Simulated scan of single mutants.
Amino acid sequence: MNSFFLLLLLLVIGVVTAVGLCGYAFGTIAGHGVRRASRPARLRFLAALTGAGAAALYTWGALHVLGGDIAAGDGGAGSAPIRPCLEAGGPERGARTLRTSVSVIPIRLVCHTSTGERYTAAVPGYVNPAVAVLSLSGAVLAVGAGYAGELDARRNKAS
């Protein structure tokens, strides 16, 4: 039940972050105008947009993990073997699954078997690599925006 509240918190934070970064991105570009925006403003726009994409995808993965965690914790009829693990690992591995745990970075539901094997379930395979690429791209673009802004400030000071 601990992971349930953590995942709900991650969902709320992810949605707020994605919406906030989208608002910042479009506010930045709209304040200057698309065609008149400086290079730093365009880079800030792209950095915020890629950050929003990373937050949205991470939230999507957290939603999958939350669904898998709820299904794994359901103690009703048909709860053994654990359904998300059965779907991900097949009938043989799913039948040996004893418990699940939640990993936050990268976002995943981990199934633990009686033989000590661990495998992931519930999160689509594209989520974590896409979050990593978008996060790294956003960070590079943000650093580039700062560098471009510094170069523009030095050019304006020298003129």
Rank of each mutant, 00 (worst) to 15 (best):
L6G: 12
L7V: 01
L8E: 12
L9D: 05
L9E: 07
L11Y: 06
V12N: 00
V12Y: 07
V12W: 12
V12L: 15
V12T: 13
I13S: 14
G14T: 03
G14I: 05
V15P: 03
V16S: 08
T17L: 13
T17F: 08
T17Q: 10
T17W: 03
T17C: 05
A18I: 07
V19K: 05
V19C: 04
G20P: 05
G20K: 10
L21E: 09
C22I: 14
G23W: 09
F26L: 09
G27H: 11
I29Y: 03
A30T: 15
G31V: 13
G31C: 03
G31M: 04
H32E: 15
H32C: 05
V34D: 00
V34H: 04
R35T: 14
R35I: 07
R35Q: 15
R36N: 09
A37W: 05
S38A: 06
S38F: 02
S38W: 04
R39S: 12
R39W: 10
P40A: 01
R42S: 03
L43F: 13
L43P: 06
R44L: 12
R44D: 08
F45T: 09
F45R: 02
F45M: 02
L46R: 06
A47I: 01
A48E: 05
A48V: 00
A48T: 03
A48C: 09
L49P: 04
L49S: 15
T50L: 11
T50F: 12
T50K: 00
A52R: 10
G53K: 01
G53Q: 01
A54V: 05
A55I: 02
A55E: 06
A55G: 06
A56R: 01
A56N: 07
